[in-house]
């Protein structure tokens, strides 16, 4: 089953760590610098990076579910 990346953007504080960790999956919007998902079903090669993004997000607003 495909693993899906979701975010709670309203919780985001724009630390940018997800973009640093997984730039193919996350970006920040121009207006407020808040997280946007650019690839919600990333290939397996990106999964470790996404898990790191989940770990390092200071407000735990990134979710990576089955």
């Amino acid at each position: 089953m495909t693993r899906r990346v979701t975010v709670e953007q309203e919780k985001c504080v724009g630390s940018g760590q997800c973009v640093m960790t997984a730039p193919k999956v996350f970006a920040q919007d121009d207006k407020l610098g808040l997280v946007v998902v650019i690839d919600s079903t990333p290939p397996e090669s990106e999964h470790d990076a996404v898990r790191d993004a989940v770990l390092t997000c200071p407000v735990q607003c990134i979710h990576f579910d089955e």
Binding site: G16, K31, L32
Partner: peptide, 17 residues
Amino acid sequence: HTRYRRMLTAEFVYAHI
């Protein structure tokens, strides 16, 4: 805090830095 911080988050966006 959220209100003030969000006035500055765009300035420190990863790609911008």
